[in-house]
Simulated assay, not measured.
Amino acid sequence: MAASPQDVPVWGRVRRSRHVADRGLKIICTLFTILGATVLGWILLMLLVEGIGGLSPAVFTETTPGPGSQGGGIANAIVGSLILTVLGIVVATPVGVLAGTYLAEYGKSSKLAEVIRFVNDILLAAPSILIGLFVYTLMVQPMGGYSGWAGGVALAIIAVPVIVRTTEDMLRLVPGSLREAGTALGAPMSTVIMKISWRAARAGMVTGVLLATARIAGETAPLLFTALNNNFWFSPTLMGGVSNLPVMIYQFALSPYENWRELAWAGALLITVAILALSVVARLLFKKETAR
């Protein structure tokens, strides 16, 4: 008695060549996944081994040493990186949030909104070194020298597109019925946005700011043209070179001095841990927002 088509296994109704091709592609994808995970794990393991070996109390209390000097730390670079990152986020957050709000609430599908989205996508993909050169021409040359202000502006330009995109996406997830309820009560559009839309998308918007912070925390190229680096504490005016971890790692890792290379590994480990922590917090907030 012949079996009915319903009794034949799914793969029994597929030509053998397709079955072999499917299995072959699955094997190739698995192998490359293992390869990628192995390389990433190797890098992280090397970073942990070398970075932990370079950590000491002096790393967090002393300034970076000069050429040929022994000992030293990266306290000034840590503080300088924090200041530049905070400065960049402080500048980028209001610009990004307001621009994303315009795209989601006011502009929507208008021609101006389409142009802004197009420019925002370009900035998302723009090489950071070009942004550094732009800020160098815009601020460093007219001001007559490197400064933390120029570094903060360069980092802000990199962070803005991330915040714009995340803010727009999160506001678009807010149900329209919430806006209609606020409008029905006689609230103006600005009040509806601030009291309803922003509150409903708060976790997602904070996630965007955290992701932007993680994005700029390890940027090196723009700081080479704006804040540069030094081996001392920064000036209160932020004029002159401002020590920071990314540029310090770049310079110290290529140096012939053993203690400089150890400090570079320690700085790389600290940046990696900080970015990992920010990414984890951002994912938790985003998961909470989507669950709502």
Rank of each mutant, 00 (worst) to 15 (best):
D7L: 04
V8I: 15
V8C: 09
P9R: 01
W11S: 15
G12K: 06
R13Q: 15
R13I: 06
R15D: 10
S17C: 08
H19K: 15
V20Y: 10
V20Q: 10
D22R: 11
I27L: 13
I28A: 15
L31G: 13
L35Y: 12
V39R: 03
V39Q: 10
G41W: 00
V49D: 08
G53V: 10
A58F: 04
T64E: 04
P65W: 04
P65Y: 12
P67F: 15
G71P: 05
I78L: 11
V79W: 00
V86W: 07
A92W: 07
A92Q: 02
A92H: 02
T93W: 04
P94M: 07
G100H: 00
T101F: 06
K111H: 14
K111F: 15
V115D: 08
V115L: 11
V115Y: 12
R117M: 13
V119H: 05
L124R: 11
S128V: 03
I129E: 04
I131T: 01
I131M: 10
G132Q: 09
G132S: 09
G132T: 02
F134S: 04
V135D: 05
P142L: 04
G148R: 00
V164E: 05
R165Y: 07
G182M: 06
T183N: 08
A184T: 03
P188G: 14
M189R: 15
S190V: 06
S190Y: 12
R202I: 09
V209Q: 01
L210Q: 00
L211T: 05
T213C: 07
T213E: 08
A217T: 03
A217E: 04
G218T: 04
G218L: 02
E219K: 01
P222K: 01
N230D: 14
N231P: 05
F234N: 01
F234A: 03
F234V: 02
S235Q: 08
V242M: 11
S243K: 04
S243T: 10
V247A: 01
V247I: 08
M248A: 01
L254S: 14
Y257G: 10
Y257W: 12
E258Q: 05
R261M: 11
E262W: 06
T272L: 08
V273A: 11
A274C: 13
V280D: 11
R283K: 14
L284G: 09
F286V: 09
F286E: 13
K288F: 12
T290R: 09
